Simulated assay, not measured.
Amino acid sequence: MADLPPLREVIARHDLRASKALGQNFLLDEQLLDRIAAIPGDLGDSAVLEIGPGPGGLTRALLRAGARVTAIEMDRRCLPALAELGEAYPGRLRVIEGDALAIDHDALMGEPYAVVANLPYNVGTALFTRWLGGQEWPPRWTSLTLMFQQEVAQRIVAAPDSSAYGRLAVLAQWRGQAKLAMKVHRSAFTPPPKVMSAIVHVEPGAMPEGVSALALERLTAAAFGQRRKMLRQSLKGVPGAAEALDTLGIEPTRRAETLSVADFVAIARELSAGSSAR
Results as ranks from 00 to 15, higher is better:
residue 142 T to G: 01
residue 30 E to H: 12
residue 218 R to K: 15
residue 62 L to E: 04
residue 25 N to D: 05
residue 208 P to S: 10
residue 136 E to S: 14
residue 168 L to G: 11
residue 13 R to H: 13
residue 274 G to T: 04
residue 208 P to L: 06
residue 173 Q to P: 11
residue 59 T to V: 02
residue 207 M to Y: 12
residue 112 P to R: 01
residue 214 L to Q: 14
residue 92 R to T: 07
residue 228 R to M: 09
residue 274 G to L: 09
residue 116 V to R: 03
residue 113 Y to D: 00
residue 80 P to S: 09
residue 134 G to H: 04
residue 254 R to V: 04
residue 252 P to Q: 04
residue 14 H to P: 03
residue 227 R to L: 11
residue 150 Q to I: 12
residue 44 G to A: 15
residue 119 L to P: 10
residue 254 R to L: 15
residue 58 L to I: 11
residue 258 T to W: 08
residue 17 R to Q: 14
residue 163 S to G: 10
residue 188 A to C: 13
residue 142 T to S: 13
residue 10 V to C: 05
residue 240 G to I: 07
residue 183 K to N: 13
residue 195 V to A: 13
residue 253 T to W: 12
residue 259 L to P: 01
residue 12 A to L: 15
residue 7 L to H: 00
residue 158 A to C: 10
residue 173 Q to G: 10
residue 55 P to A: 09
residue 277 A to Y: 00
residue 11 I to G: 01
residue 134 G to V: 08
residue 97 E to P: 06
residue 249 G to E: 08
residue 115 V to R: 02
residue 171 L to I: 01
residue 259 L to F: 10
residue 45 D to I: 03
residue 145 T to Y: 03
residue 175 R to M: 13
residue 93 L to H: 09
residue 237 G to K: 08
residue 229 K to A: 07
residue 157 V to N: 06
residue 91 G to I: 10
residue 212 S to A: 02
residue 266 A to V: 00
residue 274 G to N: 03
residue 95 V to N: 05
residue 51 I to L: 05
residue 96 I to M: 09
residue 225 G to F: 06
residue 6 P to E: 00
residue 147 M to S: 11
residue 257 E to T: 05
residue 174 W to C: 04
residue 37 A to M: 11
residue 59 T to N: 04
residue 117 A to W: 07
residue 253 T to G: 14
residue 89 Y to I: 05
residue 169 A to E: 03
residue 8 R to A: 15
residue 162 S to D: 11
residue 181 A to N: 05
residue 69 V to H: 10
residue 45 D to N: 15
residue 120 P to V: 04
residue 64 R to G: 13
residue 182 M to A: 13
residue 190 T to K: 11
residue 140 R to E: 03
residue 63 L to N: 05
residue 93 L to Y: 07
residue 139 P to C: 02
residue 221 A to K: 15
residue 148 F to H: 04
residue 166 G to Y: 11
residue 150 Q to V: 12
residue 24 Q to R: 01
residue 161 D to R: 15
residue 9 E to P: 02
residue 223 A to T: 08
residue 235 L to I: 09
residue 11 I to V: 15
residue 149 Q to A: 12
residue 111 E to P: 10
residue 140 R to V: 09
residue 77 R to L: 10
residue 172 A to G: 08
residue 115 V to T: 01
residue 141 W to R: 03
residue 159 A to G: 12
residue 224 F to E: 00
residue 76 R to L: 10
residue 244 A to Y: 08
residue 131 W to K: 01
residue 75 D to M: 04
